[in-house]
Amino acid sequence: MSTMTFPVWCDPDGQPVACVEKIKVMHENLEELRQMAQDALEDAILMGCDEHQVRAFMVGLMQGLENPYQA
């Protein structure tokens, strides 16, 4: 697995998230997501799908995620 470079995570007010455990969970979740996306991309290419179409779909998938905690 490649090592990802992460930003400093900030709260909605722009202040850095300081909790080490929260940051650890965030990084683990994103590493897992990256690996799943990589596997899906590789499978799609091996099955003959167009790489650019698959990537565009994945971008749309991420952009379509909803925040269930909005007030």
Rank of each mutant, 00 (worst) to 15 (best):
M1P: 07
M1G: 07
S2N: 04
S2M: 04
S2E: 00
T3K: 03
M4Y: 06
M4C: 00
M4S: 04
T5L: 05
T5Y: 06
T5H: 11
F6A: 01
F6Y: 04
P7W: 05
V8M: 06
W9G: 01
W9F: 12
W9D: 03
W9N: 00
C10Q: 00
C10G: 00
D11Y: 07
D11W: 02
D11G: 03
P12S: 05
P12N: 05
P12C: 03
D13M: 01
D13C: 00
G14A: 00
G14P: 02
Q15W: 04
Q15F: 05
Q15T: 08
P16R: 00
V17L: 06
V17N: 02
A18E: 11
A18I: 05
A18F: 10
C19G: 03
C19H: 06
C19V: 05
V20Y: 10
V20S: 04
V20N: 08
V20G: 02
E21H: 08
E21D: 01
K22E: 13
I23Y: 09
I23R: 04
V25S: 03
V25R: 05
V25M: 05
V25T: 10
M26R: 06
M26W: 14
M26Y: 13
M26Q: 02
M26C: 10
H27F: 10
H27L: 04
E28I: 11
L30P: 02
L30Y: 12
E31A: 10
E31F: 14
E32Q: 09
E32N: 05
L33P: 01
L33N: 06
L33K: 00
L33S: 03
R34I: 13
Q35D: 09
Q35A: 14
M36A: 13
M36P: 03
A37I: 09
A37N: 04
Q38Y: 02
D39I: 11
D39N: 09
A40F: 08
L41K: 01
E42C: 07
E42A: 11
D43K: 06
D43N: 04
A44V: 04
A44H: 04
A44W: 01
L46R: 02
M47C: 13
M47D: 12
M47A: 10
M47H: 07
M47R: 03
G48I: 01
G48Q: 01
C49T: 02
D50K: 09
D50P: 00
D50S: 06
D50T: 10
D50R: 05
E51I: 09
E51Y: 05
E51D: 00
H52L: 12
H52M: 14
V54N: 00
V54E: 03
R55L: 15
R55F: 11
R55D: 13
A56I: 09
A56F: 08
F57Y: 01
M58V: 08
G60W: 00
L61W: 07
L61P: 08
M62E: 14
M62I: 15
Q63Y: 06
G64A: 14
L65Q: 07
L65I: 15
E66A: 15
E66K: 10
N67M: 13
N67T: 15
N67K: 11
N67A: 11
N67P: 11
P68T: 14
P68E: 11
P68A: 11
Y69N: 08
Y69M: 09
Y69I: 09
Y69K: 10
Q70N: 14
A71F: 14
A71K: 15
